[in-house]
Simulated assay, not measured.
Amino acid sequence: MIPYGKQDITQADIDAVVNVLQSDFLTQGPMVPRFEELVAAHVDAKHAVAVNSATSALHIACMALGLGEGDWLWTSPVTFVASANCGLYCGAKVDFVDIDPKTYDLCPVELEAKLKQAKIDNRLPKVVVPVHLCGQPCDMAAISKLAQEYGFKIIEDASHAIGGKYKGEFIGNGRYSDITVFSFHPVKIVTTAEGGMAMTNSADLAEKMNLHRSHGITRDPHLMTHAPDGPWYYQQIALGYNYRMTELQAALGVSQMERLDAYVTRRHELAKRYDQLLADLPLTLPWQHPNSYSGLHLYVIRLQLENTNLSHLDVFEALREQGIGVNLHYIPVHIQPYFREMGFSENDFPQSMAYYRDAISLPMFQGLTNEQQDTVVAVLTEILSSQP
């Protein structure tokens, strides 16, 4: 089976983790700060807060921005559920903004129209979470302009996008948002096994997220309610969680970051080959905005079902039966049973549902060989050619 995504682990990665295992610290040592500094420097952000997952990073980002009961968080329906759940964790309500039919990202035109109505209804969002689906950045300049006009905060869900660029600058630099979140899950561009990181240029937000990731506990005398009782002293000054990243994970991340640019370059080579090899098939291939340099976490094709007698399910199952580990990213969040109970229906976001009806994620990872890619293309070509 050729998987849709796969980590790349080298001997250098293994050695880095073993070195930590043989050190004095397995958690709360020097490696996590080193990883944070490395990622912050790479993307040109002032602060980084490493945690045990991107979901945790989204949660503490919402907490740091003061999201709570009575507030609204808006995000894209075409994302993993964590982009919406982070608002629910804080007691806020969640709504969605339909996607752009070309980029599959949250559509700024739809966002503006929804904001105008929300202002009339007195239900403007406190936080908007644009999701850089597949690694392609959203139109952050347009979204940032709307944030200034309507007064909401922005968390970029860049779980797919580390190493990508927007208008020539690395995603994560905070030019158009308050906080940016990266994921280091094994199928992502670089991995820490599990893990995430929140980037910000605000010292205040970084301090709050640092507290929230570790039980709300501080050893900083400047944050305490009174002078420390002694060198052993700490205070819990907020309600936080145990979202810390381990030293083992950070060591793997430090090692992987050395290959980030090479990984993204290879993904672009693979995408270019896919574009060429699939050009004559009844497919809509990924469109890349000229202002962006995608991290290319995913390569999503859309079947032109009007030009074939096969169904979406037919093609998907046939690919898997022949050893091609395709996937679908994602089932729109608003049609999940948990969200249907909130009143959402399939008709609410037509572009997202149109995407769901014909999208397939083909294998895309830095270790994918040209020969494996040729196999993927050959199998897909055969399936689309042998219609009933």
Rank of each mutant, 00 (worst) to 15 (best):
Y4C: 07
Q7M: 11
T10Y: 15
T10G: 12
D13C: 15
I14M: 12
D15H: 13
N19K: 03
Q22N: 12
S23P: 04
F25V: 00
T27A: 15
P30M: 02
V32W: 02
K46V: 06
S56L: 06
A57D: 05
I60E: 02
I60G: 08
A64N: 02
T79P: 00
V81Y: 02
A84V: 07
N85M: 14
A92M: 08
V94L: 12
F96K: 08
K102E: 05
Y104H: 09
C107Q: 08
E112W: 04
A113S: 14
Q117A: 13
K119N: 07
K119M: 11
N122D: 11
R123Q: 08
V127N: 01
P130R: 07
G135R: 05
A147C: 10
G151A: 09
I154G: 15
A158D: 02
S159W: 09
S159P: 03
H160C: 14
I162A: 13
G164F: 00
Y166T: 02
K167R: 14
E169Y: 07
I171F: 00
G172A: 04
S177E: 06
T180H: 00
V181D: 04
H185E: 06
H185F: 10
P186W: 03
I189V: 15
K208P: 04
I217S: 08
T218N: 08
R219A: 15
D220C: 10
L223G: 05
P231Q: 09
Y233R: 06
Q235C: 10
G240A: 11
E269Y: 14
Q276Y: 03
L281V: 07
L283M: 11
W287K: 11
N307G: 03
N307L: 12
S311Q: 01
D314E: 05
D314A: 12
D314N: 14
L319S: 02
V326K: 05
V326Y: 00
N327V: 11
L328Y: 14
V333D: 09
I335L: 08
E341T: 08
F344P: 01
D348I: 03
Q351P: 02
A354F: 03
Y356K: 14
D358V: 08
D374L: 13
A378G: 13
L384T: 06
